[in-house]
Simulated assay, not measured.
Amino acid sequence: MGRSKVEKNTATVLKDAESVLSRPVGRDFSMQGALPDQAPYGLVHSELRRAADRALTAGERGRALENAAAYAFSAVPGCEVRGRRTIDPWQSAEIDLLVGNRKREDGLFYLPEIILVECKSSVHPVPVPDVRDFAFKVKHRDLKLGILIVAAGATGARDRRSAAHHTAAIAAALGTRILLVTTRELMAISTAGEFVELLHEKYFQLAASGTFGADG
């Protein structure tokens, strides 16, 4: 492929990506079919690097992490990001991402049809109040699964079920399951299939251990 054609294709990918991320909150902005197969994870990794850039403001880092999560989920067969930064009618809670899952055999087959996603770009482990608040958001909407995407893990230890891990265990016992995914884990994968495998493995670990699946 000639250089000019490569540059043209790259420009097209970036233009499509910018269009996807600028669509209004609450609208379907799935990238299914909008980007070449190899494009989403280059974009995921690019946004993850921005999320770790301390030269940016906390708001900019948080937005970058949300972008990375949106790219990752939209690349999964059968998944669509159906809402972003959605605020409830009482102005009391915001949802970073609302993901629809058609449960395709080559997608997130074992996970529920609707998934809430919250992103935390803080350099500090996610504390108990943040996990408790997120679990409440999931429970309040009568949903079964929430996914926390974080930069620095969670407080406490899974084997002792302490701190945030204990909070996640209580939530699971009450029917609200929370998965914990780290930015380091996302940086280590390069395809939608690997992302699906990661989430399925964490879902099974949660069922077996009663709290967060092992965080990387």
Rank of each mutant, 00 (worst) to 15 (best):
F73E: 02
N9R: 06
L48H: 06
H140Y: 14
V126R: 09
A64Q: 09
A169T: 03
A168I: 06
K202Y: 09
K103D: 02
A157K: 13
A192Q: 12
E7L: 12
G107F: 09
R158T: 11
I115D: 08
S190W: 12
G175I: 08
R85F: 00
Y71F: 15
V76A: 02
R23Y: 04
A214P: 12
L206F: 13
P129R: 01
A169Y: 05
I115Q: 00
G33A: 07
D28T: 09
V117E: 08
E194F: 05
T12S: 11
H165K: 12
I95Y: 08
R3K: 07
V20K: 00
V13I: 15
K144S: 06
R61F: 13
E118V: 03
L21F: 14
Y203V: 15
I149H: 11
L111E: 08
G33W: 00
S4D: 05
M1Q: 10
A39D: 08
P36K: 04
Q32I: 14
A93H: 03
F195W: 10
K8Q: 11
T191F: 01
D96H: 10
S162G: 10
E94R: 05
P89G: 05
G83A: 13
G2P: 01
L180Y: 08
A151V: 02
C119D: 09
T211L: 12
P129F: 08
G42F: 10
S162K: 03
R84I: 08
G83C: 02
E113W: 13
D16S: 13
I114N: 07
K5I: 06
V150L: 01
C79F: 06
E94G: 10
S162Q: 03
G107C: 13
G193A: 11
K137F: 01
L97C: 00
R104Q: 14
G100I: 15
S122F: 01
R3N: 04
Q38P: 07
T176F: 01
A75I: 12
R54I: 06
Y71H: 06
A17K: 13
V76T: 13
G100P: 02
R141P: 04
S22V: 03
L14I: 14
F195G: 04
E118A: 15
R85N: 07
G26E: 02
F109G: 00
G153A: 05
K139H: 12
G175R: 05
P112W: 10
R184V: 10
Y41N: 09
R177H: 15
G100A: 14
H124K: 13
G100L: 13
